[in-house]
C-alpha cells in the first residue's frame, strides 16, 4: 500500500509518509516529531499512534522498541467538558 494512504495518527491525519519524511529530516524522538507533526497531540493523546510511531522510530534507528520513549502521560486521560469540571465542583461544596 502507498505510504501516503497509511494513516499513523488519526486525530491529526498524519500518514506513514509524513512520519518517514520527518525521520529523514532528522527528528528522531517522539517528542521532536510530536512538535513538528502534532502526533500525540489529538484527543487520543498518543494512545493509538504512540505504539505505531514508536515502532517506526525503532526501525529507523535500528534500536529495540524498549529504548524508544513515547511522550509523557499528562492529564486528562479522557476529554472532559470545562462545564463538567465547573459543575462537579459546585456539587461537592
Amino acid at each position: 500500500m502507498n505510504k501516503k494512504d497509511i494513516i499513523i495518527c488519526r486525530c491529526e491525519d498524519v500518514s506513514l509518509e509524513d512520519l518517514h519524511n520527518c525521520l529523514e529530516e532528522g527528528y528522531t524522538t517522539f517528542e521532536d516529531i510530536k512538535r513538528i507533526l502534532r502526533i500525540g497531540m489529538g484527543p487520543c493523546q498518543g494512545n493509538t499512534c504512540g505504539l505505531l510511531a514508536q515502532r517506526e522510530i525503532a526501525k529507523y534507528l535500528k534500536l529495540p522498541l524498549s529504548q524508544v520513549k513515547v511522550h509523557k502521560v499528562r492529564p486528562l486521560i479522557t476529554g472532559v467538558k470545562l462545564k463538567a469540571i465547573v459543575e462537579n465542583n459546585k456539587n461537592e461544596s
Binding site: 492529564p75 476529554g79 467538558k81 470545562l82
Partner: peptide, 11 residues
C-alpha cells in the same frame, strides 16, 4: 460557551 469544549491535555 467554552463550557461545551472538552479538555484534552494540561501541562
Amino acid at each position: 460557551p467554552l463550557g461545551d469544549l472538552r479538555v484534552i491535555r494540561q501541562w
